[in-house]
Design a protein around this nucleic acid. Structure first.
Lengths: 223, 223
DNA sequence: CTCGCGGTAGATGTCCTACATTTACACACT
DNA sequence: AGTGTGTAAATGTAGGACATCTACCGCGAG
């Protein structure tokens, strides 16, 4: 089957699995969705059911999917690392929170060391978007901008591994709790964000890490 | 087939995959080993080749195994998270190093906050073993004790996620470079280890994190 | 009208066979 | 000793068969 593209170095199963993973990570198959059946997928892709099964199975064993006999296959996580942690049940919520905070602080330190101008631009943009959403009392936009700031810190570290891990932790949290925020926010909270930003701009790694932890503490207490 | 254990809630494939993963993680199938063929494994386990294939495939797609047509299947990583990072090629060595350092420092901070007595015992034991190996000029034992100290810091954090991530990073480094150490070690180096230990004992999170980073810096410079 | 029971269709789980493709390795020939 | 070829064995892919389990619908009893 398949018109047979001239070369095929990568195994078909892997191509299929990559496709599925892309569908999951892109959100086209959101969490808790029941994906099409194996036979249907096999027919659509023009491959055998065995191939589809192997692809699905591999995503299942990493915790992304969960097959249920007689029912179907469901999306359980949108990130492989989250999937592994979920599967191994290493994740009390507090611990995930701590891990994310630690990664963010480590990233803040690196960001202060590297001082990339584009990273700083991203951060200031996030802060402005955050303020704007706050003024407009747009809670949804506020949450998004806030997340963008925190993620921006990790991006500014220039370390893709930390970013990957951060995304995994953030994903785990997002899947468990809805992000809460209330208006008006404590002035302390905004100040804590600014502290992180300023410490990074100042190129002071220790201060950046400390400010990052202080920010997390402030968030904890304001909940 | 199979004498059929009375109950079978978890799919056979997953049981088989778990077995293989355990063999890899335990080191019974070390890195770069060629594992037995699918037919042989199927015969030994009393399951069909298809089942074995699905199990192997899932470990392959997470980067633990690498199958080669006409040859066999080789062990490529000993940890799933390392496998994912390897597969996605997110890993310049420097970045892995930084990420590991960041995780260790975050853990040091948590350890200082929690102050578990057993964690401290582990640390002091590691330091003593380290000193003993140094006095005996036993390089191998020294490297082991040194690793135990660093990992002990992360253990003392009480956060299994950080530990998991740390192990993944450490594994990536170990697979890429041989850990180097030379006798006699710089006095600074031993002092830097002690600083971390003391900051944790003192229950000073900021100091613990700072000492941890200082330790890494010292290691970097002494190479 | 509601509740409960059973049937049925469809989903995954497992096994089997067959063949294609690729590779390592040993043997024979030069 | 070097080279080349053939063969065995490994993974890749396909297709089919049957078992088992479950969601869902429809029918009947209360």
């Amino acid at each position: 089957m398949s018109l047979n593209g001239p070369v095929r170095q990568v195994p078909l199963v892997q191509q299929v699995a990559d496709q599925f993973r892309a569908l999951i990570e892109s959100g086209e198959w959101p969490r808790d969705t029941r994906i099409p059946g194996e036979n249907q997928l096999a027919a659509e892709l023009g491959v055998s059911r065995g191939t589809v099964r192997e692809a699905l199975r591999s995503l299942s064993l990493t915790g992304l999917l969960e097959p249920r006999v007689g029912d179907g296959t469901y999306v359980r996580a949108t990130d492989e690392i989250s999937g592994v942690l979920l599967r191994d049940e290493l994740s009390s919520l507090d611990q995930v929170f701590d891990a994310r905070a630690g990664i963010e602080a480590a990233a803040a330190r690196l960001a202060a060391q590297r001082l990339s101008s584009e990273g700083i631009k991203t951060l200031i943009a996030a802060i402005e978007a955050r303020d704007a959403a706050h003024d407009a009392s747009d809670l949804a936009a506020f949450v998004i901008a806030d997340s963008a700031f925190h993620r921006g810190v990790v991006e500014a570290s220039g370390n893709p591994i930390l970013l990957r891990l951060y995304d995994a932790m953030a994903g785990l949290l997002a899947e468990s709790i809805e992000q809460t925020a209330s208006f008006p926010e404590h002035p302390q909270l905004r100040a804590a964000h600014l502290d992180v930003y300023e410490a990074i701009c100042a190129g002071d790694p220790d201060a950046a890490a400390r400010a990052s932890y202080a920010l997390i503490e402030t968030v904890k207490q304001s909940q």
